[in-house]
Amino acid sequence: MSNPRPLEEEVYDMSGARLALTLCVTKAREGSEADLNALERMFRQLGFESTMKRDPTAQQFQEEMDNFQQALDARNDPVSCAFVVLMAHGLEGRLKGEDGQMVELENLFEVLNNKNCQALRGKPKVYIVQACRGEQRDPGETVSGGDIVMITKDSPETIPTYTDILHVYSTIKGYIAYRHDREGSCFIQTLVDVFTERKGPILELLTEVTRRMAEAELVQEGKPRKVNPEIQSTLRKRLYLQ
């Protein structure tokens, strides 16, 4: 039996422009400014051209995404990567605008896919969503054992419409996301710390974010709670930000 061959490392070309769009509802979301300040620091360190919009309505969430896509496709220089940060109150699959109306996350994600945004075709698109996805609360469990990791590699001549995308949610489906009134959210603050302190492919960095959040002790209404992000990836290559 022959020994398995190590994976050949393929990486995304990050030599072009890096663009970031942050849409954040601050209304009734104490701590949001701390998150915005942390993100601004992170994007500056990672060499991103960053645009931040506060308190969009549900319609403006969609309009700002459309404007971002049009600006990307209108650029004369090559684009390497785009980050979109969405922060608001929410339910599973939806975000609440400043006006109290809901916008579908799927409609926002559609805007930059390989079919609709030529500048990002075959380029990594990273979505970071800081929002509740339900009302459940996790008190935590005592577990033991290891993790199983499956690694796949695919390099087709044509690419699927929904590839090269990374969704990072602040919590898992059905559960609350936590935010401190002064210090910001556990998720955004931890993500910024890891992304600015560590080097490595983004999925390994996100594993570190998950580890730190899983170990964190959160207290809500006097009761201990646990929370961790959820990561959904169709990236075909390794993505390095540092």
Rank of each mutant, 00 (worst) to 15 (best):
T161K: 08
L105T: 07
L120I: 11
T196N: 12
K223P: 09
E104I: 04
Y162F: 15
L241D: 06
A131W: 08
I176K: 14
E183D: 10
S185L: 11
V11T: 15
A88F: 01
S2Q: 14
M87H: 07
K223M: 12
A71W: 04
R41P: 01
A71D: 04
G134D: 13
L19G: 00
V129R: 07
A214M: 14
I176C: 06
F109V: 02
T207M: 04
L239K: 05
D181S: 14
E215M: 03
G222E: 01
E92R: 13
N228D: 01
I165K: 04
M14G: 13
E221R: 14
E208W: 00
V79P: 01
E183N: 08
G47V: 06
E204W: 00
A20H: 05
R75I: 04
E183G: 07
L205E: 01
V168G: 05
A17M: 04
L36G: 01
S80D: 10
S2R: 14
A88D: 08
I159Y: 05
A17K: 03
R211N: 11
F68K: 00
Q189P: 07
N107G: 12
H89C: 12
E8C: 09
Y178K: 03
A28C: 10
R238D: 10
E106V: 09
E135I: 00
Y162G: 06
G16T: 09
I165H: 06
D73V: 03
K123C: 07
T196C: 15
E40C: 10
P4N: 12
L239W: 06
I231P: 02
F61D: 05
D99C: 08
K223I: 12
F109E: 05
N228P: 04
D193H: 13
A74M: 08
Q220K: 15
R94Q: 11
G140H: 09
G31N: 03
K226P: 00
G134Q: 05
N228E: 07
Q69G: 05
P124K: 05
H167F: 11
Y175C: 05
L95K: 07
H89P: 12
H89R: 09
D77I: 04
E197A: 15
K153G: 06
R54C: 03
D99T: 06
P229D: 10
D35A: 03
E208C: 10
Q232W: 07
P124T: 02
Y127K: 07
L91K: 15
D99A: 10
R5F: 12
R198H: 13
R198W: 01
L108D: 05
V149R: 11
M14K: 04
G16D: 05
Q70M: 11
M150F: 06
D154G: 01
I188D: 09
D66V: 10
N228K: 13
R211W: 02
G31S: 01
E8D: 11
E49P: 04
D77V: 05
